[in-house]
């Protein structure tokens, strides 16, 4: 691993300043992806800004229509939160399926969302639940946030402070995990808000995306049968040693159907 300067700011203002002043910074949250990337020299920031001591970035607040989760809230805390389990059980279950118990003790929602790994779980919930990503200087709608492979709408030194999820009438997340890593080969987050339905797919393309054809079909008939014949094209789907593009396309429909069945049940 290359050397770096380590910063441990006490406030969001200090963190923002340190991030802006650095030549090539990375924000350190749980580090569950960043630190392995640095060990492999895939990432070599000049400066690490550790958010561990910044007040106000942890915690879960449930409102009448929303659940807001601080960026430094760990997967384990979301998984075991009675409030999240009650308001959006699919989100608690999703958090409980990330990595393994030791990883969930460190990994954070803000880190996962900022990283936008194509196979990560949280982005599916952010897009599926029409969430708002709050940062140190603005709010970004989920539909505008994920822009590509490890790419988001975040500016270089911008820091996520919280994610605000809309509470759905029903929702479910189902993934087909790669057996060794647990990462989603394909994961489908389906959420129903009154007459509207959102279907967000992770693992299949450069970043999480919605399948509007499925959303429209489910809006009039919220059942697995409604989307059984909807197959997405495989032209821009990921293909690797674990899974070919046409198989991923097939999994999109299968995972979405299972998610609808669970949400409807």
């Amino acid at each position: 691993m290359y050397e770096f300067n380590y910063h441990r700011p006490k406030s969001l203002d200090e963190a923002s300043s340190a991030a802006k002043d650095a030549e090539d910074r990375k924000i350190l949250a749980g580090g569950m992806t960043l630190i392995p990337s640095m060990k492999l020299r895939l990432a070599a920031p000049s400066d690490l800004i550790d958010l561990a001591d910044v007040d106000g970035l942890k915690g879960i607040t449930v409102g009448s229509d929303t659940v807001t989760i601080g960026a430094m809230t760990r997967h384990y805390d979301v998984q075991t939160s009675a409030d999240v389990q009650k308001a959006i059980p699919a989100l608690a279950a999703l958090a409980g399926g990330i990595g393994d118990p030791s990883v969930r003790h460190r990994g954070t929602i803000g880190g996962s969302v900022a990283h936008s790994d194509p196979a990560a779980d949280y982005p599916a919930a952010v897009l599926g639940l029409d969430a708002t990503v709050k940062t140190d200087n603005r709010e970004i709608a989920a539909d505008d946030f994920f822009t590509g492979l490890f790419e988001t709408a975040l500016e270089e030194a911008e820091i996520i402070t919280a994610i605000e999820f809309k509470i759905p009438d029903a929702a479910a997340y189902i993934k087909f995990p790669q057996p060794a890593s647990g990462f989603a080969l394909v994961g489908a987050f389906v959420a129903k808000f009154g007459g509207d339905v959102r279907v967000a797919i992770t693992g299949a393309k450069d970043c999480v995306f919605r399948v509007t054809e499925m959303e429209q079909a489910l809006a009039s008939n919220f059942s697995p049968d409604a989307i059984a014949d909807i197959q997405i094209g495989d032209d821009d789907l990921l293909a690797d040693i674990h899974c070919a593009a046409d198989y991923r396309a097939h999994l999109v429909t299968v995972m979405a159907k299972r998610a609808v069945a669970q949400a409807a049940g």
């Binding site: 380590y6 580090g31 569950m32 630190i35 030791s102 003790h105 460190r106």
Partner: peptide
Amino acid sequence: NVHLNGEAVKSCTLFAIQCE
């Protein structure tokens, strides 16, 4: 794996300096 404040964590994915 070691325990950090009583919880299991992977010590290869954590900087010593984070444990101040």
